[in-house]
């Protein structure tokens, strides 16, 4: 197990470096610098700015500077927010996004697994068809369609819930964003759970358990749930990525001051360091969470450790 864990951690490092290099190159291959915008600056001023942000150095040197900064948690200064460092901007906005994403994932796992299990137990019945129909719809409809339509009906027309991010802290303002973010994941996890639960329920050890006279609830809870969760567990990586992506939209629609909103703003302001910093932090987050999922997978299913 230790060997497996160490190998996984070692494997994640080149991935992370690759991502950072890719993002860095993309930003620096952009035609025109971040300051070549509306105003034409005198040449010596431009030179001075370039020197201050080390843009006059050769690219490999800039990259090394960036990576060594990263290792010390320094993502460089923001180009558009004067006097702010990118890490400050990220630290300010990340907690809200984290709360949103974590709640959405928890909701998605809870509802998705329950719905999928129920559908698997009632295979072919109307309840199963309903869950599958809902799931296909949920997978198909993008977050940026669900979010405004829910706002239109539940907030604007019926006025049950606030349409934006009110100053009032609590469940009320979190409800719509979290539900919107969770919906497609609930749908996907329900589908996955149903398929793998049906598969597990047909195995021999389940038949043995049933033959010993155990009730359906016990069979599912004690015997079937763990093996049936493996595909869901390996979906966690893509799910986290999808929730982060969705969070960009949800934060825009509901006006939540989170990392996603910061990212979109940085993108439209052409704030290269900010956008680069956010991409790098997203990637780091996703890769570390994937690593945890991988290691958990090894804990739950010992067979993968020896592959």
């Amino acid at each position: 197990m230790l060997r497996y864990t160490l190998l996984r951690i070692l494997g994640a490092i080149p991935t992370l470096l690759l991502v950072i290099a890719l993002a860095f190159l993309m930003v620096h291959a952009a035609p025109g610098g971040p300051f070549s915008s509306e105003r034409v600056l005198p040449e010596h001023v431009e030179k001075e700015i370039e020197r201050r942000y080390h843009l006059d150095e050769p690219l490999p040197k800039q990259f090394l500077r960036y990576v060594s900064g990263l290792l010390q948690g320094d993502l460089g200064p923001s180009y558009s927010y004067r006097d702010y460092d990118v890490d400050e901007l990220i630290a300010d906005t990340f907690p809200v996004s984290l709360k949103l994403g974590a709640l959405a994932m928890a909701l998605a796992l809870l509802l998705g697994v329950s719905a999928g299990t129920v559908a698997a137990l009632r295979q072919g019945a109307w309840l199963d068809k309903f869950v599958m129909g809902f799931s296909m719809t949920g997978i198909s409809i993008p977050v940026f369609v669900v979010a405004p339509v829910l706002v239109l009906f539940l907030a604007v027309k019926l006025q049950w819930l606030p349409a934006g991010w009110t100053s009032e802290v609590g469940l009320k303002r979190l409800f719509l964003p979290v539900v919107t973010l969770a919906l497609p994941q609930i749908a996907y996890i329900a589908r996955l759970t149903r398929a793998s639960m049906i598969d597990v329920l047909n195995r021999d050890f389940i038949r043995t358990a049933r033959a010993q006279g155990l009730g359906t609830a016990t069979v599912v809870r004690v015997h079937a749930l763990k093996p049936a969760m493996l595909p869901v567990l390996s979906y966690m990586g893509p799910a986290i990525a999808a929730v982060l992506t969705g969070s960009v939209v949800v934060e825009e629609v509901f006006g939540i001051p989170g990392l996603g909103q910061q990212f979109v703003r940085g993108a439209s302001n052409r704030d290269y360091t900010l956008v680069l910093g956010i991409v790098v932090s997203y990637a780091t987050l996703i890769i570390s969470l994937n690593l945890i999922v991988d290691i958990l997978y090894g804990v739950i299913d010992p067979r993968v450790r020896y592959r």
Partner: peptide, 20 residues
């Protein structure tokens, strides 16, 4: 497998920002 886990959409946004 590695690429599967990456936030590709952010790279596309990065591309869109960088290349007008």
């Amino acid at each position: 497998d590695t690429l599967y886990a990456l936030p590709f959409i952010f790279f596309v946004i990065l591309l869109m920002v960088a290349f007008e």
